[in-house]
């Protein structure tokens, strides 16, 4: 018996739906990648720490504005066990904790959240991208209409979602909080902050995600990824600290410290003043050098990504 068509043989109904454009396949990849990340325990551990940090800043800011609303020069009841001077509390929240809705608040918050993003991308990045390379599954993506383009875009969107989930979105919530508990004029007086938060998130997104693609493509395993990122985010800053802070070499050497450049660009976006860590000397890294450092990393990472995923990805 000759089989004339698969439909008649298997008694399939003919397709009656509308087909989406090819580029929407990227969203399916994003969706499935995020599902994969959400099944990892490490994601929920890091996410809970990020939520704790967010709550700290949320209530810290709330406390600041609430204290500011009390009688000036008066005493403020702290919990049920004591009283504190209003000015002292505000000074503490402003100068020490920096939870006063200033650009430094958002800078510190996003910097802390970024640590979580780095840990998450290192531990989950291998399963997000490395497994496809190790198991040879890229060929399944290549055989579809969108090909590797959809794959790269889909994975990029998934990693970007994580970055913004941890950094940009909570920072925007903190900004909104101030608008609610202070006045809406806060938005009018600090438009740069709003765009700065989005800009800082964008800078972290570009920097970290492009680095992730390149390093996962090169190492393909969690171990190699961890070691490489330890070098970038630990060894390089340590070496720069030794060279500049202890041995008083040219501060321009800080351009080697990729994460320092990202943080300085973030400060510029937010309009925050730079803060010196203990032992750190005055740094005056030209913002354009920071842009150049980020641009260099992005360019090299993109080049490696194209080489690894588009040209060599199918080879085992």
């Amino acid at each position: 018996m000759a089989v004339t068509s698969l439909n008649s043989f298997l008694e399939y109904r003919p397709w009656r739906g509308l087909r989406n454009p090819v580029w929407m396949g990227a969203f399916a990849i994003t969706r499935e990648s995020l599902k994969l990340i959400f099944t990892r325990k490490v994601f929920w551990v890091v996410f809970s720490l990020a939520v704790l940090n967010f709550l700290l800043y949320f209530f810290g800011q709330y406390l600041f504005f609430w204290v500011a609303d009390q009688q000036p020069d008066g005493l403020v009841r702290v919990g049920g066990f004591g009283r504190a001077n209003q000015n002292d509390m505000m000074q503490f929240l402003r100068s020490v904790l920096k939870m006063d809705g200033s650009p430094e608040t958002f800078r510190n918050f996003i910097n802390l959240q970024s640590r979580g993003i780095i840990v998450l991308l290192v531990l989950a990045g291998a399963s997000l991208l490395g497994e496809d390379l190790n198991q040879g599954s890229l060929i399944f993506y290549q055989s579809k209409s969108g090909g590797m383009r959809n794959y790269i875009v889909g994975k990029f969107l998934a990693a970007s979602f994580l970055v913004h989930l941890f950094a940009t979105v909570p920072a925007l919530f903190l900004f909104l909080e101030i608008c609610f508990i202070d006045t809406w004029t806060y938005l009018l007086y600090h438009p740069r902050l709003l765009f700065g938060i989005i800009g800082y998130g964008f800078v972290i997104n570009i920097g970290l995600v492009s680095l992730l693609f390149a390093t996962v493509g090169f190492f393909r395993s969690t171990i190699g990824l961890i070691m490489c990122w330890a070098g970038v985010f630990f060894l390089l800053p340590s070496l720069c600290a030794i060279m500049i802070d202890r041995l008083r070499l040219n501060p321009a050497f800080r351009v080697l410290d990729f994460w320092y450049c990202v943080e300085r660009l973030g400060e510029k976006c937010l309009g925050a003043s730079p803060t010196l860590l203990p032992g750190q000397t005055d740094h005056s890294l030209n913002p354009w050098l920071a842009v150049a450092s980020l641009g260099f990393v992005f360019f090299i990472s993109s080049f490696l990504t194209i080489q690894i995923y588009f040209k060599k990805g199918v080879e085992s």
């Binding site: 393909r220 395993s221 171990i223 070691m227 070098g231 060894l235 390089l236 070496l239």
Partner: peptide, 19 residues
């Protein structure tokens, strides 16, 4: 890969020490 990363670290630190 671990070996090459270790070698890379050595080169990096050596470059800093040389400078």
């Amino acid at each position: 890969s671990l070996f090459w990363v270790s070698a890379g670290f050595l080169l990096l630190v050596a470059a800093v020490v040389v400078s």
